[in-house]
Design a protein around this nucleic acid. Sequence first.
DNA 1: ACTCTCCAATGGTCTGACCAATGTAATGCC
DNA 2: GGCATTACATTGGTCAGACCATTGGAGAGT
Lengths: 238, 238
Amino acid sequence: MKAQRVSETIARRIQRAITTGKLEPGEKLPAERDLAKKLNVSRVSVREAYRSLAELGLLSVKRGAEGGAFIADFDHEPVTRSLSLMLRLGRTSHEELTEARVLLEPPIARLAALRANAEDIRRLEELVEKQEAAIKGNGNPRRYDLQFHRLVADCTKNLPLIIVMNSLADLALEAFARIDIGTDVKRHTVDFHQKVIDAIRRRDSEAAYQEMLRHVRDVQSRLGKVFERQRTVLQTRP
Amino acid sequence: MKAQRVSETIARRIQRAITTGKLEPGEKLPAERDLAKKLNVSRVSVREAYRSLAELGLLSVKRGAEGGAFIADFDHEPVTRSLSLMLRLGRTSHEELTEARVLLEPPIARLAALRANAEDIRRLEELVEKQEAAIKGNGNPRRYDLQFHRLVADCTKNLPLIIVMNSLADLALEAFARIDIGTDVKRHTVDFHQKVIDAIRRRDSEAAYQEMLRHVRDVQSRLGKVFERQRTVLQTRP
DNA sequence: ACTCTCCAATGGTCTGACCAATGTAATGCC
DNA sequence: GGCATTACATTGGTCAGACCATTGGAGAGT
């Protein structure tokens, strides 16, 4: 199964160099013209290879002086993007997305309680403090809410779980970005988060499971009211 | 946040047409030359747009007479691909991948027991029969093993869960493709599958949870022996 | 020391050409 | 007639060379 296209061959070579660690984040690839000359191919082919890798999130391409193609930092954004796309294509409802979170987050919290180290717990506490400050200052605490679920996933030290959870959380944030919530709900959320953190700190995995389950079910029921009989689907991007 | 590049603008327009259903799978887009003329842009720009969408799995591009760019069927392959890539970049071990499955599959099996319809159960039973036949015929039953976990996820009727589970299963298959297993283990696997199906048929969600948990833990412990002290990571593609 | 202008590097786009694959229709052989 | 072969039109893939647009830094001017 050889790569037919020239651009694909080039892209594979670079991708391999990245996954094997020969090229590291931040490193700069040759300018399109230079690599084309070096490989005896047209600039178009090199360009297409770079664009493909950029699409995968492996490269960051900047133009202008001191621009060029740089190996991108490792990020789960590409996964989120394609997952998001598939869910849109499948006309996935908000309820489905929330249901998935109800199923996945409690077990993740349980593992988090077993694995979290002092640094993880410090981060979680710091986050809740910021969240409380945001509520008092009438700011938007929603991004902290998202961050909380990310941090819990981080505690598991399991990359597949972290990536999947991050992607679902990102989608949830995006899907519910337009819904307004009252201050009482915000406080309620912080309370739940605090309880989950307490359980993690005590290494009480079952409590972490149960508290997270209550939390996501609480979110689920609130959203259920908002979307009652509405049957909306994820909107397409503008 | 306008799209700077011409090709990006075109790609967005097409993507939107696809996600909103204006373009359906199987439909053919104009030839590169034609669309370029129609939009008053160069063929290069149209081409780049098509390639980007193909990279996302939205288009399938064929060359030659009667070729062209066709709207692709929905498939979770792009998600699997980027997830796979991220895991490679993170040097994810087989153990981590298996651990994620141990955590996610039992809750999925539980929901599957609640949601499965007659057709789902028929498919599961049919699959196990094929699997048994493959063992008797000394064939390779591994792809049926993968398929089993997919079908269980399908029972949940929850697209996010289905996609995530499919991706993880694909990765697991790929990661363990080179490991040989004995006939006794194959039989063991079929037994586990049969028990899970029984639980689903009885709508016994807790039994489904427990049986699936035993199954994936069994797989986990077997793999633990194989990889003992080996600490291998996911290989990069050739 | 600061600001402004200019410039070179680099990606983005365009034009027009030719190459390569591929399905189909015309051709030719039996 | 039926089957294999060939020719051809269509379409993506690649190439070459040019020009445009953006960008950061060097250098001139104050």
